[in-house]
């Protein structure tokens, strides 16, 4: 069977660089000057124990959380994108990402596709590969199926930068294999990824490693 190509914007080159990113929650300093960079085709693996700031770093990189200090520079085709534009361009898979439980998988994807100003086809293609029925209510999905929907949602608008927080959690073997294949294709096509995981990931495409909380 011929695989459908999912989640690429051919011809767009992107780079991500962040320097001395700091973030506190009240008195608790979660990020103490974290730096890193990711080039096209590269994947930065962020590891650390629970509470070390992996998810906070990814939220800062996505633009969902403003860092207290430090710089985050995301460039596409040589142009720096501001935080609002970065927020809309990145693809995010995260445990706290939820969808409308009253709507079906297809209705959720169509809604977000209209917000993303694109068609739902890429999301459908991802779900076809991951094996998730379109007509099921999002509220009736198991945790593994929700994770599949998160992947489809993240790749809906062909992002160059994927920010993946524990991207393979709750997957069965087939789901994890499918998601790993999608990530590998994304990187082979010049995409970038930052992957947060509490444990080291066995993955061929890791180009950099950041250990938090040491």
């Amino acid at each position: 069977m011929r695989r459908r190509n999912c989640g690429y914007s051919p011809g767009v080159t992107a780079t991500l660089r962040f320097d001395d990113v700091r973030r506190r929650f009240g008195r608790l300093a979660v990020l103490n000057g974290v730096s890193g960079r990711v080039e096209p085709g590269g994947m930065l693996l962020v590891t650390g124990r629970n509470g070390s700031g992996k998810s906070t770093l990814l939220r800062c990189l996505s633009g969902l959380l403003a860092p207290d200090a430090g710089t985050i520079a995301y460039r596409e085709n040589g142009a720096d994108l501001d935080v609002a534009e970065r927020r809309r361009r990145v693809g995010v898979v995260a445990p706290d990402l939820a969808f409308y439980e009253e709507l079906t998988v297809q209705e959720n994807l169509e809604f977000f596709a209209r917000l993303r100003r694109t068609g739902p086809e890429r999301g459908h293609a991802v779900l076809e590969r991951l094996g998730l029925p379109l007509d099921r209510l999002a509220g009736a999905l198991s945790s593994g199926m929700r994770q599949r929907l998160r992947w489809a949602w993240a790749l809906l608008h062909s992002p160059r930068l994927l920010l993946l927080d524990e991207p393979f959690q709750n997957f069965d073997r087939a789901g994890e294999d499918g998601a790993r294949a999608l990530l590998a294709e994304h990187l082979q096509n010049g995409g970038l990824a930052v992957v947060a995981s509490p444990l080291p990931l066995d993955f061929d495409h890791v180009s950099g490693h950041l250990e938090l909380g040491v």
Partner: peptide, 12 residues
């Protein structure tokens, strides 16, 4: 319901 995160990332 935590759908605000997806909205923040996708909507103008």
């Amino acid at each position: 319901t935590h759908t605000a995160t997806a909205l923040r990332l996708a909507a103008t």
